[in-house]
Amino acid sequence: MKAVFKEEQRFSQWWLWLILIGIGALPIIAIYQQIFNAPKLGDSPISALGLIVFSLFIFGLIALFWFMRLKTNIDQNEIRMSFFPFVKKQVNWKDVKSAQLVNYGFVGGWGLRLGTKYGTVYNTKGNRGLAIELLNGKKFLIGTQKETELREILAKIKK
Rank of each mutant, 00 (worst) to 15 (best):
I52S: 07
P27R: 01
I23Y: 00
I29S: 03
L134C: 11
L154C: 10
V96G: 07
L70N: 03
Q76K: 15
Y32Q: 12
L41D: 09
G115T: 00
I29L: 14
G119Q: 03
L114W: 14
L49W: 11
L16A: 00
L49D: 12
S44D: 14
R128M: 14
S55Y: 00
W93E: 04
K117P: 01
I28T: 01
F59W: 08
V107E: 02
F11M: 01
K117L: 00
T72C: 00
Y122W: 02
K2L: 12
L114K: 15
K6H: 13
G129T: 11
G143Q: 08
L61S: 12
I157R: 09
D95M: 08
Q34C: 04
S44R: 11
Q76L: 12
E7S: 06
K89M: 15
K138C: 04
K159H: 14
W110L: 04
A38D: 09
G105Y: 08
T144F: 12
T120D: 06
A38T: 13
I35Y: 10
Q145T: 09
S82E: 14
N123Q: 07
F65C: 02
P39N: 04
R113T: 00
A48M: 09
Q100V: 10
R128F: 11
T120S: 07
A25H: 00
Q9C: 09
K97L: 14
I74N: 02
V96C: 00
V91D: 04
G119R: 05
E8W: 07
I19E: 07
L18W: 07
N77R: 15
K89Y: 08
G105V: 00
S12K: 12
T72I: 07
E78F: 05
K2T: 13
K6L: 14
I153H: 01
R128Q: 15
F11C: 02
A63C: 13
L141C: 04
V4N: 12
R69I: 05
Q33H: 05
A99Y: 06
I29H: 01
F84K: 09
K71V: 13
G108H: 03
R80S: 14
A131W: 11
A155L: 04
N103F: 05
Y118E: 01
K6T: 13
K2Q: 15
K117V: 02
I52Y: 05
I29C: 06
R128L: 14
K88T: 13
G129S: 00
L154Y: 09
F67M: 13
L141P: 10
I52E: 05
K125G: 05
K88H: 14
R10T: 14
F67N: 01
K138A: 13
Y122A: 09
V87E: 11
F57V: 11
F59D: 01
R113C: 05
N92C: 09
Q145K: 10
Q13E: 15
P85G: 02
E147N: 08
K97C: 10
R151H: 11
N123E: 04
I35Q: 10
E7W: 08
K117I: 03
I21G: 12
E149P: 06
F11T: 08
K6S: 15
D75V: 06
S98R: 14
I157S: 12
N103A: 11
L51F: 02
N123A: 06
K97G: 09
L49G: 10
V53K: 06
V107S: 05
L154W: 07
I31P: 03
G60I: 10
F86A: 06
K88G: 08
G60L: 01
R113W: 04
K146G: 07
W66N: 03
F65P: 07
W15S: 12
R151Y: 06
A25W: 12
